[in-house]
Amino acid sequence: MQLESVLTCPQCRFQSTEPMPTDACQFFYVCRGCGQKLKPLPGDCCVFCSYGSVPCPPIQESGKSQCCP
């Protein structure tokens, strides 16, 4: 299981390697490049599933239906 993901801002394309929580979803992230507040896209549970290079740990472990009920 990977516990870090590279988040890419859809506005400015700034990339940042971030640790992913294993016990909760991260719903918001503020881009370090432009200050844009990112939130999950419709159908995604967290910012890592929407903008990350790797999906969040619950998705990696159990699939999309098991993330953040």
Rank of each mutant, 00 (worst) to 15 (best):
K64Q: 06
V54R: 03
G52V: 05
A24K: 15
P10V: 12
Y51C: 00
D44I: 07
C46V: 02
S65W: 00
Q2D: 15
L38N: 07
L41V: 09
Q60I: 05
Y51S: 01
P10K: 11
C46Q: 00
G35H: 12
M1K: 14
P55K: 02
C25K: 07
T17A: 15
C45E: 03
K64G: 03
F48T: 03
Q66A: 14
L7T: 03
R32H: 12
G52W: 01
C67N: 01
C12D: 12
V6F: 10
C68H: 04
G43C: 05
C45K: 05
Y29F: 15
V6D: 11
K37V: 10
C46N: 06
E18S: 11
S65K: 08
V30K: 13
L7H: 05
P21A: 12
S62W: 08
Q60C: 03
Q36T: 05
G43W: 07
S16H: 15
P55G: 01
D44L: 01
L41H: 00
S5R: 11
P21I: 12
P10Q: 08
L3G: 13
P21E: 08
D44H: 02
P58A: 04
Y51D: 00
L3C: 10
Q26G: 08
Q36W: 00
V6G: 06
G52L: 00
Q15V: 07
P21H: 10
G33R: 06
M20T: 07
D44F: 07
P19L: 14
F14H: 15
S62C: 01
S62P: 00
C12Y: 09
F27Q: 14
G35Q: 11
S16M: 13
V47Y: 01
Q11I: 14
V30A: 14
K37M: 15
R32D: 13
T8P: 10
L41G: 06
E18D: 05
T8S: 13
C25F: 13
R13A: 14
G35K: 10
P21K: 11
I59L: 03
Q26S: 11
C56Q: 03
I59Q: 05
Q15G: 04
V54Q: 03
P69F: 06
P58K: 00
C67I: 02
S50D: 09
F27K: 13
C56F: 06
T22W: 11
C67V: 01
Q60R: 08
C49I: 01
Q26V: 11
V47N: 00
K39Y: 03
Q36H: 04
P40Y: 06
G35C: 08
C49P: 02
C34D: 09
Q60S: 05
P10G: 03
Q15D: 08
Q36V: 13
G52C: 03
S62L: 01
F27D: 11
C9D: 09
A24I: 10
P57C: 02
F28L: 10
S5M: 12
G63K: 04
L38R: 05
M20R: 05
A24D: 07
Q2N: 11
C25N: 13
